[in-house]
């Protein structure tokens, strides 16, 4: 027997805004019959404001309640504000969810994001193919895992399962999830920018950790830094609508400036330290330091 709040019971037994919204111009769909829950969210957006919302949900009581409360929440919101709605906001609006059911609130947030993406003409799921698939049973990518860890301050693998379902099937990825968690907690992975956090290594640049790396000349270092920026780092940031510019290389200090979406990204510091610097260290030299300059 789950301990549901009165708000969950109310939204489950008397769901608001059920059904197809005929004049919807934004539709987001997440989940599947196979996975046990699915949500189709319909939005009508006028002048960048959500004027109407409805849903159809296949799933348990908390999935239905999360969908219902979400439609109530977003009505009247600007698109920008709606994008800032997190799964925590949805759970909070319901007076909380059992921890095992937090994935229902995550599903709501993902459907909202997917709907707005569809309205913008973007593919429904960001980085669906780029993100490394961690949980094959429930199709959860590393990016999704990193995101819930950061947004909900998770500290255990069990919590990640509660939020994303990852690891709840065959359990083969539990170890992998533990590694991801460790990396995030150690600050080694930045959220949004570190799509599929493990960079694709350019073979001829890769330095074996055991092998003492030969000292690089200034010119060699500059060439390699530029190449890694162009071939690995920039493409990743561009996937998120951001960009990066090399400003200067002074000895082992690399100065960069973030561009595009990255400039307004609250986790830009993580992006610099966790992703840019780490990637450059992995690929070029272990003692490189990256500094962000505003320009």
């Amino acid at each position: 027997m789950w301990e549901y709040t009165d708000a969950v019971r109310d939204h489950f037994l008397n769901p608001r805004n059920v059904g197809v919204l005929k004049d919807a111009n934004a539709v987001g769909e997440v989940g599947s019959l196979a996975c046990g829950d699915a949500l189709k969210l319909y939005l009508k957006i006028e002048n960048s404001r959500i004027v109407d919302a409805s849903f159809q949900t296949f799933g348990c009581a908390s999935a239905i309640a999360s969908s219902s409360v979400l439609t109530d929440m977003v009505k009247g919101m600007s698109v920008e504000d709606a994008l800032a709605v997190s799964n925590k906001d949805i759970a909070k609006a319901l007076g909380g969810l059992p921890k095992e059911k937090m994935h229902c609130s995550v599903m709501g947030q993902e459907a909202l994001e997917a709907a707005i993406r569809s309205w913008r003409g973007e593919p429904p799921v960001p980085h669906a193919h780029e993100g490394r698939l961690v949980c094959k049973c429930f199709g959860v990518t590393e990016e999704q895992i990193v995101k819930v860890i950061q947004e909900n301050a998770l500290v255990s693998v069990e919590e990640i399962t509660n939020f994303t379902k990852a690891g709840g099937g065959c359990g083969e990825c539990l170890e992998d999830m533990g590694e991801i968690l460790k990396n995030v907690l150690a600050g080694g992975v930045s959220g949004k920018s570190a799509v599929g956090a493990k960079p694709v290594l350019i073979p001829d640049l890769r330095k074996s950790k055991t092998e003492a790396a030969p000292a690089l000349s200034n010119v060699q270092r500059m060439q390699r830094v530029m190449r890694v920026l162009d071939e690995i780092i920039r493409p990743r940031l561009q996937q998120d609508g951001g960009d990066i510019e090399l400003v200067d290389i002074d000895g082992k200090e690399v100065s960069v400036a973030l561009r595009g979406m990255c400039t307004s990204c609250p986790s830009s510091r993580l992006t610099i330290e966790g992703f840019v610097q780490q990637t450059l260290r992995d690929q070029v030299e272990q003692d490189l330091a990256v500094r962000e300059v505003s320009q």
């Binding site: 059920v18 769909e29 599947s32 019959l33 699915a38 949500l39 159809q56 949900t57 296949f58 239905i64």
Partner: peptide, 14 residues
């Protein structure tokens, strides 16, 4: 009525 699959063809999601 709440479910997105109902009313779809018989093999919806199958």
């Amino acid at each position: 009525e709440i479910s997105p699959y109902c009313g779809f063809s018989d093999d919806a999601g199958e």
